[in-house]
Design a protein around this nucleic acid. Structure first.
Lengths: 247, 247
DNA sequence: GTGATTATTATGTCTATACATAATATCTCG
DNA sequence: CGAGATATTATGTATAGACATAATAATCAC
């Protein structure tokens, strides 16, 4: 088990103090992975607080994966101590604007087609689904910062068939017009082929960062997109503090 | 404002139902960014529940960035609708083991040195800080899957000076021996230089995925590490559901 | 009108209590 | 001893009430 001398620092709400105190015990390895931490009732007694307050602190620790809770058994320091970082992918317009640069958008091609070959082999869309294929790029002060290669399901989003996407980036348009319930991301590095190199203004073979995103609405794939950034230029930053909530 | 016809689906705890119902309104764009959503008191009355229950639902929505709450003013649908994905960086040992492959580790070099030049220019360590520089790689079934280039501050972790790191990967060792309070990540793509290409068994110039991580303990930098994966092989996946908690 | 003061109000936090639920421990009967 | 029934217990959820806090709205003095 564990000893029970928790130090509350007096800063901020009580449940945050309790959360911090326990998180500190864990990060300082005084309470080690697998250890049972004191019961809610014990913490209540020791800290002279109500159970709801202790419960709020423990729930938030469980939400962030620092502890695991089991009815009747108690709460335990999580054994798998992976590093979690909240990866925030901002809208590219906001990102460029945030850097004080002028955002612009260029549609390259827009093609109506039917899903077959790679698109179905990868299990993205059912064979025969009508889709719109869009290739476009995003620029900051005239310099390409993002190449976008996107497929939109016309089954899930019929109105996309009437949208030219000449002035409106498909990402923003989709956010405005279609609800989504789930998204999955994969990140990888790719070498620029001649086409991509031309679109992004980098040398052929240059390393680029790619985010693949697949978005669903109610079990139906809405859109599949490859977002490719020049590798040297673009970085994604996350920050994580185990003893603190949020980003 | 917004209408107030929330549909509770009857599945699971009440606060989750309320959370889901509101998240649905937002993702379906019936309540739009900037809209004020009903006050806690209004929701209580409409749903015939207690304020604490409604409060729990709204707090959790605020935690996940779907709404913003302001005292006296009310709660509002968040205007900046960025996509958040929980990026989980597992310990490489666990990752390899999880794929059913045999994990192994190789120390390449271990050098004691003093921080200067690039290390201080980047503001990582104060000039003159004693550090240990470790280069090593991680293999799955004998194939390199990760090259690690790490600096550990001897000021923050004096015992690292006595650790050879010949059998123990520095990442695991640090997790075991040093508490940390904050970490920052950056992700980018790099081209493999001849050295890196040799270590990872890829061709020179191949695109690789790099995670830079800087870790602090109480405002002092503990370690700075570049983790480089073969770009084609390694992907990081996050999943996110706006209407649901957790990852 | 304008600035300072006061009132109002929605959220933020905390308490005490109650019952539900799931997992464990104990008991009972064959 | 062992399988099944029963009791126990820590967490999970929900309630009602109280006061704190911060931001807005209203009021008052000048």
């Amino acid at each position: 088990m564990t000893d029970l001398a928790l130090h509350l620092d007096g800063n901020g709400p009580l449940y945050e103090q309790i959360r911090r105190a326990i998180a500190l015990k864990i990060t300082r390895r005084q309470w080690r992975p697998g250890d049972r931490i004191p019961f809610e009732s014990e913490l209540c007694a020791a800290l002279n607080t109500s159970r709801m307050t202790v419960n709020k602190a423990l729930q938030s620790l469980a939400d962030d994966g620092l502890i695991v809770r089991r009815r009747k058994a108690g709460s335990f320091v999580a054994t798998q101590q992976s590093v979690q970082a909240p990866l925030t992918i901002a809208k590219i317009e906001d990102e460029v604007a945030g850097e004080g640069k002028a955002y612009s958008y260029e549609l390259i091609t827009r093609t109506a087609m039917r899903a077959e070959g790679k698109l179905t082999v990868a299990g993205i869309f059912p064979r025969g689904t009508d889709v719109v294929h869009i290739r476009c790029r995003h620029l900051a002060d005239g310099t390409p910062v993002l190449f976008e290669d996107r497929y939109i399901s016309l089954k899930a989003v019929p109105v996309a068939g009437d949208e030219p996407f000449e002035a409106t980036p498909p990402g923003s348009w989709l956010l405005e017009h279609v609800p989504w319930t789930e998204a999955e991301h994969a990140i990888c590095a790719v070498s620029a082929d001649p086409d991509l190199a031309g679109q992004l203004g980098v040398t052929v073979g240059a390393a680029c960062l790619r985010i693949e995103r697949r978005t669903w609405a109610d079990d139906e794939t809405v859109t599949f997109v490859n977002l490719t950034y020049p590798g040297h230029h673009r970085t994604l930053i996350g920050r994580f503090q185990p003893g603190q909530r949020g980003g």
